[in-house]
Design a protein around this nucleic acid. Structure first.
Lengths: 149, 149
DNA sequence: GTATCTGCAAACCCTTTGCAATAAG
DNA sequence: CTTATTGCAAAGGGTTTGCAGATAC
């Protein structure tokens, strides 16, 4: 955790920006858990702890964390953006139940080979990817089956 | 193209809803091209042809087309939703330049095997997936290199 | 005829931004 | 001291919705 803080501090300083308590509070809170989060959740988590950081500051800090490579946006179909930090899991593969919205995170090595093929075929310099697989989880499939009988 | 219209008409009637000229106009316009689109583009394309369909109707029709399995949402990082129709390309693999936002569509058979593994490992009934690979295209990479010299 | 659909404009909600006060370096 | 950052509240911008008139069936 200290690592990310250090990466962020250096990133901020390198750009002649200021490393403020608000920015540190935000990154500390984000890296204190391994879950996905959205702005509201983060704001509430901070407020419950008695820390007062405005949403504006959160909205202004998240793009910095993205540019620093510490977090990434994750697209959910619920109308607002979600984020996850990249520490320890640079790849982003999600298996989503379209019914209950449960998310299972998985890893598959074949994607690294695919990445190599893309570099070769299209000459892109690849920085990351996001694979979202949609479907019905066993429970929801069963419920749906029962409902249509 | 007639196929999709038929699928949609049946989908609408099966639900006791009404197959209106506006709904037909929208689906006809969507399937008249193979590009991605967003609500504004679709609205303008219709208006340029002298067809007047409100954005509200477009916004109300798109979820129906999604439910009918005829189009899917595509997440772009530009603040609003994009769509593409699923006719002929059920898989959605995009290679995106993060600089110029160019999109290359590709297909890779290894993803079908990955899908099989997911079915086996997690017992999901998979309906689709979306793979977004991010990076720099050759041109933008070259420009960036030249700029930092 | 009845229930759904349309267009309009207002409401919504997430996100961004202008500004004056504050604080980092 | 200088310049960036903060919090607030207002503005933005895409999307949704209430409503009255129109229309599919």
């Amino acid at each position: 955790m200290v690592d990310e803080i250090e990466v962020f501090r250096r990133f901020i300083r390198r750009r002649g920006m200021r490393y403020t308590p608000e920015r540190e509070t935000i990154i500390l809170e984000i890296f204190s858990r391994h879950d996905h989060f959205d702005v509201d959740e983060l704001y509430l988590r901070l407020h419950r702890q008695g820390v007062r950081v405005s949403k504006a500051s959160i909205y202004r800090t998240l793009p910095l964390l993205i540019e620093a490579g510490l977090i990434t946006e994750v697209f959910f179909e619920d109308g607002h953006m979600h984020y996850e930090h990249t520490f320890g899991h640079e790849q982003h593969c999600h298996l989503r139940c379209t019914e209950c919205r449960r998310v299972i995170e998985f890893f598959d090595a074949s994607l690294e080979k695919l990445e190599d093929r893309l570099v070769r075929d299209y000459d892109f310099q690849i920085s990351g990817y996001s694979l979202e697989v949609f479907g019905l989880c066993p429970q929801c499939r069963e419920q749906r089956r029962a409902a249509t009988e």
